[in-house]
């Protein structure tokens, strides 16, 4: 591009900008802030219907309550077909009640299968987040449609199936945080890396590899 053409182009642009009342200062200003004028402020009150998350310690549990007895009917009607009449699970859906904690831990130590035996009684650290899960995500086929009291009641029923609360217990925003979950003290935060392989390049082992093949063919798909 020649100097002449450049200057003509530049003049034309400047003239156009003046005619439209534009300012070149805007470019610098936008770069400086990047966010100027974007979005809306929102009040806590407006956010409230979405601010549903319950913390492990019971923070943000909504006002309400439901007893074990109150939970029987909704559990049997809306939950039992997947999770079993007694919380034993069905059709590949999760158990509510797994092996009791001592048995579960024993399985872990012996290398026996504990994966399929998880339940609220052996792998769920805090009762308030059980309420949160049920309220937000259940029943599976119509997620988030249970009311607050109904969700407390079903939470209570499931806790009872797991042998965690008695038949006469009532779950509420005041009682749930104090429910003692059997697995609570067993949780330990990430301690990895937990392996220490070395980048050996030659003669890394004297042993012949013991090769294990698939026991069953055609498992995939």
């Amino acid at each position: 591009m020649s100097k002449l053409k450049t200057s003509k182009f530049g003049l034309g642009l400047a003239a156009g900008a003046m005619a439209l009342g534009l300012s070149t200062a805007g470019i610098a200003a936008e770069h400086a802030s990047g966010f100027n004028g974007i979005g809306k402020n929102i009040t806590d009150k407006a956010i409230e219907p979405w601010d549903i998350s319950v913390f492990y310690d019971g923070t943000n549990l909504p006002k309400g309550s439901g007893s074990v007895a109150d939970g029987e009917q909704p559990y049997q009607a809306q939950c039992a077909m997947c999770h079993g009449d007694f919380g034993e699970g069905a059709e590949g859906y999760p158990k509510m009640a797994g092996d009791p904690m001592p048995q579960f831990i024993n399985s872990l130590k012996q290398g026996l299968d504990g994966v399929g035996n998880r339940g609220v009684n052996n792998a769920w650290g805090h009762a308030p987040t059980l309420f949160d899960m049920i309220k937000r995500h259940m029943p599976f086929y119509a997620p988030g449609t249970m009311g607050v009291d109904e969700s407390y009641a079903v939470t209570c029923y499931v806790l009872n199936l797991g042998g965690i609360v008695d038949m006469d217990f009532t779950c509420s925003d005041e009682t749930l945080a104090d429910v003692e979950m059997p697995s609570a003290e067993y949780f330990v935060t990430d301690t990895r890396p937990d392996t220490n392989n070395q980048r050996c390049m030659s003669d890394c082992t004297d042993e012949e590899p013991e090769v294990v093949y698939s026991a069953v063919e055609g498992v995939s798909g």
Partner: peptide
């Protein structure tokens, strides 16, 4: 939070 995803 220690959600379902984080505890179970």
């Amino acid at each position: 939070l220690v959600t379902y995803q984080e505890t179970r």
